[in-house]
């Protein structure tokens, strides 16, 4: 799931400073699940901004609406009536949703109400951990099901660096709790699986060059010809 955190409200207040009527758009997908951009947070942010603007003697009117997913055009169509009434939109969806909703309504400025953080798992209420960085060429088969790109702080592909000590990554600091060394995790898992020989295989370096621009994904077998 995509995990996001709320943007500091002073930033959002700056973005909406010139406007008198704004829509806060929530998403019932990932950002509801990660407790950042669902109907509840929409209500909280709206209330906070209304009060902040009243205090500054510059009242603002805020509409609130939350729909299934902002990464699908059909759902974004549902915002039409409210978008038509406002000067700007603040979206609490992830970066995908924010852009995609903005594309639907190009005449209305759209602003991010969240910082999109990662692809992660919900460890427990209020705790998320990154597990995948969408590298586009998955190597989990070679690494015991543990992602070296994500779990190794340096995204090393062929074993730990010299900073791996007692199972911890050298990037750990007292402020940031002990970070397990990703390669130690991989080693432990492979050794439990009896597949340590997999460590010997050299994983070639990935092509991070995005010469082809933003990634797209097309399945010819599924694309629909509407002509």
């Amino acid at each position: 799931m995509i995990v996001a955190e709320g943007k500091p409200v002073e930033k959002i207040l700056e973005m909406v400073a010139p406007f008198k009527k704004v829509l806060i758009a929530g998403c019932r997908g990932c950002v509801t699940v990660c407790l950042t951009g669902g109907e509840k947070e929409v209500g909280i942010l709206a209330s906070q901004i209304r009060m902040a603007r009243s205090k500054d003697g510059n009242p603002i009117e805020i509409l609130e609406q939350t729909e299934e997913r902002q990464c699908d055009a059909e759902y974004n169509a549902k915002f039409l009536e409210n978008v038509e009434q406002v000067d700007a939109i603040v979206s609490l969806a992830c970066g995908i949703g924010i852009q995609y909703l903005g594309e639907k309504y190009p005449a209305t400025p759209i602003f991010p109400g969240v910082n999109t953080l990662m692809l992660g798992a919900n460890i427990d209420v209020g705790k998320w951990e990154e597990r995948c960085m969408a590298c586009g060429d998955c190597v989990l088969d070679k690494t015991g099901g543990i992602c070296p790109i994500t779990r190794c702080s340096k995204s090393l592909l062929n074993g730990p660096c010299g900073g791996s000590q007692y199972g911890k990554c050298e990037v750990s600091t007292p402020a940031k709790e002990d970070i397990p060394c990703g390669w130690q995790l991989i080693y432990d898992r492979l050794s439990a699986l009896g597949q340590l020989d997999k460590m010997k295989e050299i994983i070639p370096s990935k092509n991070w060059l995005r010469a082809k621009g933003p990634r797209t994904y097309v399945r010819e077998d599924l694309t629909l010809d509407r002509s």
Partner: peptide, 12 residues
């Protein structure tokens, strides 16, 4: 319609 099946209530 509003439930995202996020499990928060279940856990809390």
């Amino acid at each position: 319609k509003k439930c995202a099946v996020c499990l928060t209530c279940y856990r809390c």
